[in-house]
């Protein structure tokens, strides 16, 4: 299975997860092909809303930076996993920056799916979507619920057949991610 991980860790407080995440990827790579993108170590511009990827160079972002590798990976992935700390009650801005760059994987055209407007996907592949929030024991239920609900909406917009959501501590993040991935 092809797996794409967006790693939105952006502050030193969560650096301790980095090593465990890398170990998890190494373990997963025995049976899968994993691309992990640690956004803060990459050169990824914020989407500027120009819609070039829809109306000028279909499928291709105006920015020729590391964001291109993310889109290339997502176009072929079976499982898109977002790993993010909760910053000011919401997924980090680094995570969100990467999410905005998913736009080239959709077409501009809108159709009604389940009674709601959504864009038609550009690629044939339908990938499952997962969210893992890094839990320092300080997450409050309301914030977690909002973040989970956002991922449910994102899953609709990106036509994910299945969506997984979890919180993980440093002690169990490897287990949480492996279980999520094995369950599809």
């Amino acid at each position: 299975m092809n797996i794409t991980i967006i790693n939105g860790i952006q502050d030193t407080k969560h650096n301790k997860y980095q090593k465990t995440l890398e170990e998890t990827v190494t373990a997963l790579n025995k049976d899968h092909q994993v691309d992990m993108f640690t956004i803060d170590d990459m050169n990824v511009a914020y989407c500027c809303g120009c819609f070039s990827c829809w109306v000028k160079t279909p499928g291709i972002c105006i920015y020729k930076d590391d964001g291109v590798d993310i889109v290339r990976s997502i176009a072929k992935t079976d499982y898109l996993l977002i790993v993010s700390p909760v910053v000011a009650g919401f997924i980090s801005s680094s995570t969100k920056k990467a999410m905005d760059r998913f736009l080239p994987t959709l077409l501009p055209y809108i159709k009604i799916y389940d009674g709601e407007s959504h864009h038609v996907p550009r690629y044939d592949k339908r990938s499952n979507l997962g969210l893992v929030l890094l839990d320092e024991g300080d997450l409050d239920d309301e914030a977690v619920k909002i973040n989970f609900d956002i991922i449910d909406r994102l899953a609709k917009n990106f036509h994910a057949p299945k969506v997984f959501k979890a919180c993980a501590l440093l002690e169990n993040i490897k287990e949480v991610i492996t279980n999520e991935i094995c369950s599809c």
Binding site: S94, D100, N157
Partner: peptide, 12 residues
């Protein structure tokens, strides 16, 4: 609304 939330730079 950007991918179901605020744009990345707005979150920053």
């Amino acid at each position: 609304l950007y991918t179901d939330a605020m744009p990345g730079m707005t979150k920053a």
